[in-house]
Write a protein that binds this DNA or RNA. Structure first.
Lengths: 350, 350
DNA sequence: GTCCCATTGGACACCGGTGTCATGAAGCAT
DNA sequence: ATGCTTCATGACACCGGTGTCCAATGGGAC
């Protein structure tokens, strides 16, 4: 059977012992070469390195992990409808991991389920993950953070929130960014501005709402409750939330949606009602997903540096591992910026 | 230092020896319990299981992998602009992996680079992956398949292609699905139908093109070369490809774009030119991404069962591992279906 | 009562690396 | 020439599981 496998042409896996034998040194010496130990004769090192290169030997990561008592797997935990965001995050994390021996293991979870906690616990303990990155809304769960601490699993939370714990948090200044966006609407002449808020319990939703309210307050514009509609960060919720805003008299001349999916919903709803964008209605979203440039007119939005934040999160995690005494100097707070596109114009003279 | 770590409240990791001591049996017996060995006294089993449950003991996967000579990591290799597709694929794979001890490790690669091959080789050998799922266009690389064979790494390719190797392939019938879509356009009365093809070298692009040509041939409609424009599966390429089709006289009354991104590009281009969709131009895309329902009018498209295909791919991979003699019976060929939305209408009477 | 077999559990080596410590050789001062 | 330190290397145990093989136990057939 074993022989048969060989016959299938599979390369027989080399071990450190094979290399040691070929180089006529002890396995420990080979181990020293692999780990760049400084107390090695240059000659010996070269000899062993040559053989490693020739044979294409790669140390077994499982054995290494076992001996070292830690492994090289980073987990990404998410529950989020925004595919583009998650993929960008994955990309950022992987950029940071590139060239290291870390790999990224992913785990989408179902926030709706009561078993999330157990699910994640199983995830980190079963594989003994080195660390995890938590995406919203998981990152807002403090019990989860405690559990990870207990399990001895490092973590970094991604959030659009206050920076209560820089070591474990990478955040963007959503509040200020939204305030900027709304100031822009006000500068264009809008006074009746609707908000489609994100789900209750999401810190990002709350931050964005506060930014919205702040900008209006600054300008001395009153904000009747009716101008705030609840959304769920989904296209459909944006669609139905707009309906209620459209029914108001007078109708708002601009709407800020707490994410792009909902902004697209607003645009779609406007189209169905025959409301011209941007002439009769200005729209601003949040996230700068590709969707914003696919629809007509392209949507103004707030862009946050997802990839850079993912990279920073990963570096925070592994920094403590590879950090040679140097502190982790990754920035923890990132700035979002307003992207101006054709979905905003001054309100029609009324 | 070690003590300090304890003080931080990290749960001390239990080993099989701890459990053995507590249960007053040998470690091998504990191992037997874990692996559900059938030749165990019921009493002993219960006793050990109780202790495992109480203590929350989880076997160290690295040690397990080392002893077993194989690990429990599945890789997903992709290079693809379609975020939604990749995420759906991840979801399908993870559904299949759920409840097993396998985890999913992801690796986006840059097809443009000459180092793709080395990159992937490094990926599978460094981590000694159990197997990988290859997404297009990686799945079309036969040299890659050979390399994986050599490395002793199982693989399953996802493709929209002929089923040359059911054991290693999960495919959808793109050709027939596209032919159906085009037949639908013909049935609506269209005779001048443009094609925006996918990138050269992509099997999916070729399949879709063949389906397109086949439907026209069936209907006895000639296809001048000018009605075929090249695209790159990106929104921008769809945009510019449409320009050349719009410049034709007479202008095509319908366009089939080989994916949704490009179809969205067509729609956008039409909007800029003031061409009404669907009155003056019908559009059909491919993939059924959420984008299709966000734009106006919603795009007709071809839906393929991504999640199910991902699940099938993963089951194929691990089936050989957990398969207790039972052959892997996952279907290898999946059907795509035409989704009719508002972007198609009979051509204007001309 | 004896023998044999089936059942159950344990001792031991092993997977492929790493840490600890000892050993031998070389370099230097005395 | 001797004694000491320094450097390079190797022997060996260990990480936490699993496979092999053998011993002990108990029950049934004779």
């Amino acid at each position: 059977m074993a022989k048969q496998k060989q016959d299938e042409g599979q390369a027989p896996k080399l071990t450190i012992n094979d290399i040691a034998r070929m180089a006529d040194v002890s396995k420990k010496t080979v181990s020293r070469v692999i780990n760049r130990s400084p107390l090695l004769n240059r000659e010996t090192r070269d000899k062993v390195e040559a053989i490693i290169r020739e044979t294409g030997y790669v140390p077994n990561p499982q054995a290494r992990a076992l001996a070292l008592g830690r492994n090289f797997l980073i987990g990404l935990v998410y529950d989020n409808p925004n595919a583009q965001m998650i993929l960008s995050m994955q990309r950022g994390i992987l950029e940071a991991l590139h060239g290291t021996e870390f790999e990224l293991v992913i785990r989408p979870v179902d926030r709706g389920s009561n078993l999330v906690m157990d699910d994640i616990r199983g995830f980190v303990t079963r594989q003994r993950l080195f660390g995890v990155v938590l995406l919203p809304p998981m990152s807002e769960n403090d019990a989860l953070a405690r559990m990870l601490d207990e399990q001895g699993c490092r973590y970094v939370r991604m959030g659009s929130a206050v920076l209560d714990d820089p070591e474990h948090m990478v955040a963007s200044n959503d509040k200020e960014a939204v305030a900027d966006a709304v100031r822009y609407l006000i500068a264009q002449g809008h006074r009746r501005i609707g908000l489609i808020a994100g789900p209750h319990g999401f810190r990002s939703a709350q931050e964005r709402r506060e930014g919205f309210e702040q900008a209006l307050a600054e300008a001395g514009i009153s904000l009747p409750r009716s101008l705030i509609a609840d959304g769920q960060y989904t296209f459909e919720s944006g669609l139905s939330a707009s309906e209620s805003l459209f029914d108001l008299t007078p109708r708002p001349t601009a709407i800020f949606a707490s994410n792009d999916e909902m902004a697209a919903g607003v645009l779609y709803a406007a189209r169905m009602r025959g409301i011209a964008v941007p002439e009769e209605l200005s729209i601003i979203g949040f996230d700068d997903t590709p969707l914003t440039t696919r629809v007509w007119p392209p949507l103004s939005t707030v862009r946050w540096p997802i990839v850079a934040m993912g990279r920073a999160a990963a570096l925070k995690l592994i920094g403590t591992a590879i950090g040679e005494g140097s502190e982790v100097n990754e920035p923890s707070m990132f700035s979002s910026t307003l992207i101006r596109r054709a979905s905003v114009a001054p309100p029609a003279i009324s």
